[in-house]
Design a protein around this nucleic acid. Structure first.
Lengths: 341, 341
DNA sequence: CATGCATCTGTGAGCGTTCACAGTAGAGAA
DNA sequence: TTCTCTACTGTGAACGCTCACAGATGCATG
C-alpha cells in the first residue's frame, strides 16, 4: 500500500472562495497583493485560507501568467572545477537562500557536456524559468550569447569575457584587490614581486594581472616578464608555476598568487626548495577560501564578498526580470593579513 | 528597450498539430511515447515539432497530470556544515546530472532556519515536486516525519535515525568500511587502536563506531573506552579529539578517524606533539575526500562510492514516485591505501 | 455478412489560475 | 435629484495541455 495514497486532494481557490463566501476573483486579488479588496473580505479570505490549508497551484498560475516564478542557476564548466571551489559553494548556498526569501525556487543546472548544454538551453529557452544566474568562467561562452538572443534575463557571476552582448553581471573588484595585495607586499619591503596568474581567458585572471602590472608601474618597479607565469587555479598548477618562477626569477622576494588553491601549491614548492615563508619570500593569495586558513603558514589573501555577490546577483536578476536594463555591479574586496607576508 | 521583447510567442501543441495535419490528440500521443500512433502520423508530427521548435509547456501538462516532473534536493542542516563537505558536492552534482538525464529538473532547497523549513515544507507539501532527495544527518529530524505523513516520496542519503516511519534510503556500508580499516590497521601490526568517532546522532557516526568495536572484538583486543573519543566531523574537532586521546591513551599506535577532515586535525595535533605518522602512529580516515590527498602524509582512507550513491538515490526515488515501495540500498566501500598507515 | 478486436484518430471537457470586463454600491459634486 | 468617481465584487474566457471517449478503419473470425 503506497503511502502516497493518503494524499488528499488539495484545496483550490474555489474551495477557499466558497469557504469565505466570496468569489474566485476576490480570493485571487487577496493572493496578489490585496488591492481593491475590502478589509472584511480580506479577513474572511485569510481565515478561509488558513482553515483549508490552501496553497496556490503554481502550474495553473504560470500557465496563464506565462511566468514560472523560478530561476535557474546555470553552471557551464567543462569539468567539475567549480564544485571543488569553496567559493562556488558559498555562491550557490547564498543564492538559494536569497531566492527562497522571495519564495522563488532555484533550479540547479549543470552544462558540462554538449548534451547537457543542449538540454538545459532547450529548457530555459522554452521559458520554463524566468531568469538565469550564470556561472561561466571561460571566454566566449556560446551559452551566454544563446541566452541573450533568446531574450532570457541573465546575470553573470564575473564579467563575461569576449561578449559583444550586453549582459548584466556582478563581480568582485579583482583589479583593485590585486592592487591592494601588491601594494601590501611593496609596503612590507618587497621589491622583486612575482605573480602566478589565473587562466587568462577568465575575468579574474585578466583583471588580477592588470592590477599587478598597474601597481608595479605605480611604484616605478620594472615590468619584468620573468616574474609572471600563468597558472590554472589548481593546486598542482600552483606547484609547477612556482617551480618555473624559481627558474626564471630566483631572486624574487614575493609572489602574488591569483588564488588560494594555487598559493597552497606554491607554498609546497617553495618549501621543497628550502625557501622560508615569509622570511625569504612572501606569498599572497586571493579568495580567502578555507585553504587560506589551513595552509602553512596561513595565507595573507584577498577576501571576495561572496555573500554580497550572491545577494546582488539575485537582486539584479529580479530587477532584470521586472524589466530593468542590465547593469554591472562591482563589489569591493578586502585584504586579510595573515602569516605568509 | 528590453531585449526580452524579441521573445516570440512559443509554438503550442495546436501549431504543431496544424503543421503536421493531425489533431492535438495525436501530437500529444507522440509526445508521450508514441503508442497508438501510425508511423506516418508520427513522422509528420516529429517533422512539425522540428520545424516549429515546439517545446512542451510543462505548466499546462502539470496542471492536468498533477505531477510536476521535478524533484527537490532538500538539505536540513542547521548550519552550513554540508556545504563545506566535499562529499556533499559530489552528491549534489551527481544527483543533478542523473536527474537531468531523465529531463527532470532539480530544485535546491536549504532548510537551515525554522523559517526556511516552514517555507520549503509548504512548497513540497503543496505537491510542487514529485519527490524529495533528502540530506539530513541528525537524529529525529521532524522534516522526515512531515514529508512521510504528507505522502511525498522521499529517499534519504544515509539511514534516517530515530524514525519510526519507513523511509527509503541509500547509504554506504559504513560499518563494513570501518571494519576494513580497523582490520587493515591490525594487519599492519597495530594493537592499540584508538578511534575518533563522528557525532553519535548521525548514522555514519554510529555505524563506524560499531564496526570499530566489532573488529576489535573479533581480534580479541580489549574494549578500552579510553581509546574512544567523540568528534564532530570538523577539522578543529579532530585536533581537540586527538589531544584528548594523547591524554587518555598515550600508548596508542593507531587511530581510526571517522572522517578525513577530522583526520587532518588529528595529523596536526600529532605533528605538534612530535608523533611521527606512520612510524609512531598510524592514522586512518574515512571518505576519501580531497583532504585525504592533500594532507601530509596522504591519508589511508575508506572511499565512499558517492557517484553510485547519487545515481541510486535518483533511481530509487523515481521508482518510489512510480509507486514502488521504499527500499534501503547499501553500497560497498573501498579501502584506499596511502602513506599514513 | 455480421461480429469482434486491435489499431489509430479527433473532439470536448477540464485541470486551477488570472485577467478583462461588467456591474454594484456609496460618497460627493453639480 | 442626477451624475461622476472610486472602491469593491463577480463572471466568463482564456492559458496549453492530457485524458476519456467516441468513431473510424482494417482484418480475422464466427
Amino acid at each position: 500500500m503506497s503511502t502516497a495514497a493518503n494524499r488528499r486532494r488539495p484545496a483550490t481557490i474555489h474551495d477557499v472562495a466558497r469557504e469565505a463566501g466570496v468569489s474566485r476573483g476576490t480570493v485571487s486579488r487577496v493572493l496578489n497583493g490585496g488591492h481593491y479588496v475590502s478589509p472584511t473580505a480580506k479577513a474572511a479570505v485569510d481565515a478561509a485560507i488558513r482553515r483549508t490549508g490552501y496553497v496556490v497551484n503554481r502550474h495553473a498560475r504560470s500557465l496563464i501568467t506565462g511566468k514560472s516564478d523560478s530561476v535557474a542557476f546555470l553552471l557551464t564548466e567543462p569539468q567539475e572545477r567549480f564544485f571543488e571551489d569553496p567559493n562556488f559553494n558559498v555562491l550557490l548556498r547564498a543564492c538559494t537562500q536569497a531566492l527562497a526569501a522571495q519564495d522563488i525556487p532555484l533550479l540547479l543546472m549543470i552544462a558540462g557536456t554538449e548534451d547537457e548544454r543542449r538540454r538545459n538551453l532547450r529548457y530555459i529557452e522554452a521559458g520554463h524559468v524566468d531568469g538565469v544566474l550564470l556561472v561561466s568562467s571561460h571566454s566566449g561562452d556560446p551559452v551566454v550569447t544563446r541566452l541573450h538572443e533568446a531574450g532570457v534575463p541573465v546575470v553573470a557571476c564575473g564579467k563575461p569575457l569576449g561578449q559583444t552582448a550586453k549582459i548584466g553581471y556582478v563581480a568582485a573588484d579583482d583589479r583593485d584587490g590585486a592592487r591592494d595585495m601588491v601594494r601590501h607586499l611593496y609596503e612590507t619591503g618587497r621589491r622583486r614581486i612575482a605573480t602566478v596568474t589565473g587562466p587568462l581567458d577568465t575575468p579574474g585572471g585578466v583583471e588580477r594581472l592588470a592590477g599587478y602590472r598597474e601597481t608595479l608601474a605605480e611604484y616605478g618597479l620594472p615590468a619584468d616578464e620573468a616574474l609572471i607565469v600563468q597558472g590554472d587555479y589548481s593546486r598542482a598548477g600552483g606547484e609547477s608555476a612556482a617551480a618555473r618562477l624559481l627558474e626564471s626569477a630566483p631572486d624574487m622576494d614575493a609572489v602574488f598568487v591569483a588564488s588560494d588553491l594555487m598559493a597552497q601549491g606554491v607554498l609546497d614548492t617553495l618549501d621543497r626548495a628550502g625557501r622560508r615563508v615569509p622570511e625569504d619570500i612572501a606569498v599572497g593569495g586571493f579568495d580567502d577560501s578555507p585553504a587560506a586558513l589551513s595552509s602553512r603558514p596561513p595565507l595573507t589573501t584577498i577576501r571576495q564578498p561572496w555573500d554580497r555577490i550572491s545577494t546582488e546577483m539575485v537582486r539584479t536578476l529580479l530587477a532584470r526580470i521586472a524589466g530593468e536594463e542590465p547593469a554591472a555591479v562591482i563589489l569591493p574586496t578586502e585584504l586579510v593579513r595573515r602569516a605568509s607576508t
